[in-house]
Design a protein around this nucleic acid. Structure first.
Lengths: 158, 158
DNA sequence: GGTAGACTGCAACTCGTTTGCAATATGAAT
DNA sequence: ATTCATATTGCAAACGAGTTGCAGTCTACC
């Protein structure tokens, strides 16, 4: 689904479920649609055109978008939550997460074949009575900027 | 690696890198080795035999164990951080995460074949100059306890 | 345009995590 | 065993992401 369509689809979904289309909601949605990486609430807030919108409203908007399953959470490694458009509204993808700087990038496509996925889902369904709704693959490592002159597993923190 | 060996290996690693083997460290390690699911700092603290150990020491121990790459973080969906033994010290596995109650269970084995993994690693190495160190597959859905009479995408929060 | 009530901004609050500091315990040397 | 330098701890205060109550505002619908 392309950005324009995602936007339309989500606003329609909002109206359909009886939610009002307010300025904060429209703008948060615009920011999410425009970004090709997951964003934290603070980042979304920073990118809003109207800076008088409160951070609390960003959180509240994210909350309703999550209820509508238009947005999902994908955490960084031990950092704040990050949000992105959920699967029907964006192409299925996974994430490259930098261990060092916490940066997250999208990774187009999915190395898990349909066949394998179905087998896994069936297996956990039977053995654990767990119903898989979505899957998320996180490739964790070192991004281009961080992967220089760092032979040891050194980190930033004191 | 079995629990006893993991314990020995990690304590050896601590000594080897010049860290002292103190009561808090030994006990936090014991708790981690004994658990077959990732634990939050508070949960680890609750399970320590000597309850006079401070929560701050649990965090500090986790910090050094992470530096040694003996422990890794795996977040719940929008909840607190959870910690578990890292790959060399525990069998390679992934997680079942319940969308609803946040519960995390281990999922033995890995549906990603060596061949596929290598191809993916090569691909992101070339196209993004990203070096993959580890991967994490999260199967997100509904656990046995939560998957009853919840046709709508309803959640807990108000 | 007028109206009910959904929604926002604000500010105070919660709670997971971090940190400064004085007191304590560890590992190595004696 | 005893001593010693200092790495490590407990405590309490601080920090920061995320949440919430409330009075005022704006949306959707008439």
């Amino acid at each position: 689904m392309n950005p324009r369509d995602s936007r339309t689809a989500v606003t329609a979904l909002l109206a359909d479920r009886g939610y009002r289309l307010t300025a904060p909601r429209r703008q948060v949605l615009d920011v999410l649609v425009a970004s090709r990486t997951p964003l934290s609430a603070a980042e979304i807030h920073r990118r809003l055109e109207n800076r008088r919108i409160n951070l609390a409203s960003v959180y509240r908007t994210i909350y309703v978008l999550r209820r509508l399953e238009a947005v999902r959470v994908t955490d960084a490694i031990g950092a704040e939550q990050r949000f992105e458009l959920a699967d029907p509204f964006s192409a299925h993808h996974h994430h490259l997460i930098c261990q060092d700087c916490g940066r997250i990038d999208d990774f187009e496509g999915c190395p898990l074949e349909e066949r394998v996925l179905r087998a896994v889902n069936r297996r956990v369904r039977r053995s654990r009575r767990f119903r898989v709704v979505q899957h998320e693959l996180r490739l964790i490592g070192a991004c281009a900027d961080c992967d220089r002159g760092r032979p040891d597993g050194a980190e930033r923190r004191p």
